[in-house]
């Protein structure tokens, strides 16, 4: 499952970010990295998504959203908990 096709307002854990290294690092700097708990709060045009991470909101275009792999969070977790890259 990816950010593009995951349900709205459900805690999801990022399992992989499948984009080039340069931009993957930028995602990491934005706080989107493997193990981070996020929620999709809004679907926009051309499959764009807004994800929330705590109080932060990050807009992603459809192509990028389709390359961020997620799984459903088993336990509600702090979205700011440290995670591995």
């Amino acid at each position: 499952m990816t950010v593009e096709d995951c349900p709205l307002h459900v805690d999801m854990v990022i399992t992989a970010i499948d984009i080039d290294e340069r931009h993957r690092f930028r995602m990491l700097e934005l706080g989107l990295r493997r193990g981070t708990v996020i929620r999709v709060t809004q679907r926009s045009n051309f499959h764009g998504r807004v994800v929330s991470k705590g109080t932060e909101r990050i807009a992603l275009d459809g192509q990028t959203a389709a390359h961020i792999h997620v799984r459903r969070a088993e336990h509600p977790a702090s979205p700011t908990a440290p995670a591995n890259r």
Partner: peptide
């Protein structure tokens, strides 16, 4: 570039 932008409140 991939679009990834923090949205201000």
């Amino acid at each position: 570039e991939p679009f990834a932008m923090s949205l201000p409140p």
